[in-house]
Amino acid sequence: MSLSTKEVNKIAWLGRIAIDDDKIEAYARDLSGILDFVEQMSVLDTSTVTPMAHPMDQTQRLRPDHVTEENQRGLFQANAPLVDAGLYLVPKVIE
């Protein structure tokens, strides 16, 4: 399996990762190599195997519906680059 430079660019965009143009081909080659490695597994017939949702053979534990978290806004917002009126401020996004 071989990834095109277009696909590499798309993957980078989806992950919001900046990559240099002169490295795209190298990424395409390396990523294709990884995919080829994984591809070897497709020789196995998995039609009767239930897809694994989690490597641990356990089920989800549930939590009772109790509020135990307290307001720690001040503490959390101390890390934020910009806040105003209790809000986190980010560059303008308009959909």
Binding site: H66, V67, E69, N71, Q77, A85, Y88
Partner: peptide
């Protein structure tokens, strides 16, 4: 009363970010 994956409150109309853990 609490969120789906955390124990923070879900009440409507609270001061911004006071119910986000």
């Amino acid at each position: 009363r609490s969120k789906i994956f955390s124990a923070a409150a879900t009440a409507y109309g609270a001061e911004p970010n006071t119910q986000a853990c």
